[in-house]
Computed example of a mutant assay.
Amino acid sequence: MNLNYPLILGSKSPRRKEILEKAGFHFITEAKDTEESFPSDMPHNEVAAFLAEKKAKAFSNNDAYYDKIILTADTTVLINNELLEKPANQEEAFEMLLKLSGNVHQVVSGFSILFNDEIQKYSDETLVYFRAVEEDVIWDYIKTHKPFDKAGAYGIQEGLGLTHIEKLEGSYFTVMGLPIHKVYQALYKFSAFHKK
């Protein structure tokens, strides 16, 4: 989809870049380091959208981004309302994957669109059904794929994500990190197709 303004993906994620490219968008990537804290009393299913908005705010109040569309995103994994963030080491990754093994968990991907200092934030949720995973298979996955940049310590497009997810209720791309069906709808108003 051709947009009437330049699009910037404010993310270092190769997965989000791939999704946006495959959806036919033209864009450049430019990420800003953002401190990813959130209020301790915030409902866990709101954290992804909150962090996506925080990332977008890092681009605000800057004339260099005037008349440019900034897209930022964040993904969280929840199981029994416990938030599983990115694992700090192999042991944390193992504990996370052990919790997901044989259970259903929730993946929430939030995204924000910043345009001329106005921010809109969105969110999408998918339920993921994980088959039970043997402990030695978990260790092999961690050593092979080093999933330390992924919330919940796995990627749906590789390893355990490919072999042990039985079904999804919701969007595959939300689990991958960008709910592209909602991103498309949100960006449509900036396109030549949109009739004012």
Rank of each mutant, 00 (worst) to 15 (best):
K150R: 09
N89L: 12
G152S: 07
K195D: 11
S40A: 15
F111H: 06
R15F: 06
S191L: 01
E53Q: 15
F38E: 03
A49K: 06
N80I: 05
E169I: 14
G155S: 12
K150T: 02
G155C: 09
T75W: 02
E53G: 15
V47Q: 02
M1W: 01
G161K: 07
A31C: 08
F193W: 00
M1H: 09
G152W: 03
F50E: 03
I69S: 02
D41C: 08
E35P: 00
V77D: 01
K86C: 11
V128N: 01
L114R: 06
D140E: 15
E85L: 14
K189Q: 14
H181R: 13
V47L: 03
K12L: 12
Q120F: 12
G102M: 07
G155P: 10
Y66E: 15
H181D: 15
A58Q: 14
S101I: 08
S37V: 10
D149M: 03
N45T: 10
V107L: 02
F148R: 02
R131E: 15
E46P: 00
A151L: 06
A52H: 07
T34A: 14
M176G: 12
D74R: 00
F115T: 07
F111S: 03
V133D: 04
A88K: 15
R15Y: 11
E30F: 11
H105W: 09
F94L: 10
S13F: 03
N62L: 11
H145N: 13
G155D: 08
F193N: 09
Y141G: 05
G24L: 07
N2V: 11
D67F: 11
S37M: 04
E46Y: 04
N103V: 03
A93I: 01
P14V: 01
Y122H: 12
Y122A: 00
E46H: 11
K189L: 04
F193P: 00
F111C: 10
S171M: 03
Y122N: 00
L160S: 07
T34G: 03
L127F: 12
Q106T: 15
P179C: 09
E46F: 02
V137C: 08
G10I: 05
Y154D: 08
K99G: 08
A88P: 02
I70K: 01
E21H: 05
H194K: 03
T144K: 15
T174P: 10
A151V: 04
T144S: 14
G170R: 00
A31L: 01
V133L: 12
Y172H: 14
T72P: 06
K54H: 10
E134P: 10
S112H: 05
H105E: 08
V108Y: 09
S191V: 00
L100E: 04
S60P: 11
A132H: 14
T163V: 13
H26S: 15
K121D: 12
Q157D: 13
V183S: 04
K55W: 09
M96S: 07
G159A: 11
F25L: 02
E125V: 06
L7T: 05
E36A: 05
Q106H: 12
L168F: 04
V183T: 06
L114M: 13
V107E: 01
F115C: 10
S37H: 13
N2Q: 14
G24S: 07
M96F: 14
E118C: 13
